[in-house]
Amino acid sequence: MQRIVEQPVMARVLERRDEAADLRTLWLERDMAFQPGQFVMVWIPELDEKPYTISALRPGRIALTVRRRGVFSSRLSDLRPGESVGLRGPYGKGYAIKPRGVLVAGGCGLAVLAPLKDALPDAPLIFGARTRGELLFLDRFPDMLLCTDDGSAGQRGFPTDLLRPRLERGEVGVVYTCGPEVMMKAVFDLCERHGVECQAALERYMKCGFGLCAQCACGDQRVCLDGPVFDSAALRRMEEFGHWARLKSGRRVTLNEYGNWRSCRP
């Protein structure tokens, strides 16, 4: 029988960098075998523990990119170099790399796709945000194809508008996506119409992170262990995808209500 010890190990903050008004990257002292799409559970002692992606990896250090939203993310953002945070993981299943991939990110979903872009520097990366001030990693990925809801940067419109012509030209083998779930649902639906595989990283409220409690259930899948990245075959069977998510109590609500609770867009 497999022996596992799932407990946080403390990691020191080495440096921090502001990405946008409410967005900050923390570099932590840690080596990690991490596949893009996976996540870690981040523990602030005596406060809480929440899942985050690793947004960048270098020898001996890993990055968390944190949007300031509530008490936890504010405390995390405010950690100073020399202070520590607990990490366990990485957990879950990442993206499965296939030929001719296109990356489609929305909002802070780019933090999830960023290490995949590092691994696939030639793959096109479409990045959409509501407005110019919410764009991030502009220096890191100068070749990004940008769009904003309000037209304040890049093309005015949605990431699907930039993805559609590429699908129509038949130049896309697989689409990797992460962002608000309504956007991922639109990307998935578009891929379905063109018969192209879509891999989407879902987000649900989590507890254990390793498949025991099923707090993060979406359909009969556990987002923490069976996902968070699901392929088209799995997404097709998942009736909750694009429609429903569960609050901390397990109560099923619309993505809109879930998004309000998480104080981020659905």
Partner: peptide, 25 residues
């Protein structure tokens, strides 16, 4: 809502949890 996280951990001889009966009612 149950207790805040961490709620479920493992150790070398099993699992320790304080989920606190989170459930939708």
């Amino acid at each position: 809502d149950g207790h805040p996280n961490p709620t479920i951990l493992t150790f070398e001889a099993g699992v320790i949890n304080a989920v606190g009966y989170s459930n939708p009612g």
